[in-house]
Design a protein around this nucleic acid. Sequence first.
DNA 1: TGCTAAAATAGTGCTAACATTATTGTCAAC
DNA 2: GTTGACAATAATGTTAGCACTATTTTAGCA
Lengths: 225, 225
Amino acid sequence: MKRFKTSAAGGGQTQLASLVAELRRQISEHKISPGAKLNEQQIANDFGVSRARAREVIGALEVHGLVERHPNRGAVVRRLELHEMYEIYDVREVLEGLAVRRAVENENPETWKKFLDNLTPEFESRIAAGDIELYEVEFNRFRKAVIAAADNPVITGMLDSVQDQTQIIMRRVLVLPGRAERGLVNLKRLLEAMSKGQAEEAEKLRRIGIRAAIDDLKRYERFVL
Amino acid sequence: MKRFKTSAAGGGQTQLASLVAELRRQISEHKISPGAKLNEQQIANDFGVSRARAREVIGALEVHGLVERHPNRGAVVRRLELHEMYEIYDVREVLEGLAVRRAVENENPETWKKFLDNLTPEFESRIAAGDIELYEVEFNRFRKAVIAAADNPVITGMLDSVQDQTQIIMRRVLVLPGRAERGLVNLKRLLEAMSKGQAEEAEKLRRIGIRAAIDDLKRYERFVL
DNA sequence: TGCTAAAATAGTGCTAACATTATTGTCAAC
DNA sequence: GTTGACAATAATGTTAGCACTATTTTAGCA
């Protein structure tokens, strides 16, 4: 059992916000599975907070769309339906494109040149040989840098929300045949455009990359879900 | 005092969700002003719900970013700062563009032709003469149709959230010199593209329209805020 | 008058107890 | 085996009371 700081314990973030962030994390990583029941007393016990606080947390998750509550019967973690996945990805496409555009406008092109320089022939052959984790780590490192450079908390918050809901499925997509290779091709072109300060071209390429990933999901739906 | 339905009263939406929607509406219309204090017992009294429920509502508003809570001291409705306005508008630009693109793809072009046909020379001269409400009503009618045709609840939810936070200020922008006229020119071109089924062109034009509105805000900041 | 310490205040935070409600389980009748 | 009625159950929903905490106010003193 993890003891959650009371509200007055400093650090700027309220107890509620901390708890919600933790539950979101657990739900998004499927540590709490879709379909799992959440109950106030259990959460209060698990996190060492009052039942009143636990209730607030569940309420916030409800409003956030992550759980479905049934009055007097408890809450269930929502399953994401496939059509929702596509809806979310439409939004992700434009938001990631926007983030990249702003990142290019805000940040020294040398930053992106450094990422490009990491994509050595050795790196590429390791991806081709199946080292998907390597690709994932590098891609996530790049993506974090983009979001930081975009410097827009609204974008960040929305993309976090998007990520919460889609990450498990998209990890499955990442291991589909040739996904990582195709992703790498797109990443190289994207980084080239970014290294030249081409903000609109970068936005377009990022969007193409997102669209390509979701197209792979469509193609292999029966295998992923 | 408005008596809020208990959770079990049917209609699919939980009491919490209804209350949150109502508070969001009041905050977004400045019926509850930025800087106003919210307290649990007052909300419980005002809406005829338990203090526990009121507390949940405030918690949800906190997580939603609409209020700032101070442990043991209460909650205050957040003031939107100008830089946040611009951050939100970046996101709005891409989301509204996406909505228009999807609407064009999903809906019969005749729909948009009908909106275009409403923009008669008489309509235009009334806008030029200062009938801003007419422009606002027609534009909002069009916008609702777009969002409905886009048929993506994720977009809708995010745009609702964006609207909550920006609508009061953007109404002030709407009465700036020439704003409505310039908006109308963009709307005509947009509807022309939509009537021809040009989804990408429509997306581009919608984005230009949003960008133009925010540019007017930048130009007249000192008068608007 | 200005400063400091103590008291008061306002509101949340927590706990306990009981009420309420929707669903599930059991049992008898057909 | 199925159906319907009733009881049990699980969890939330509400209320009440008190604890706790951060801020504001007040009183006393230099």
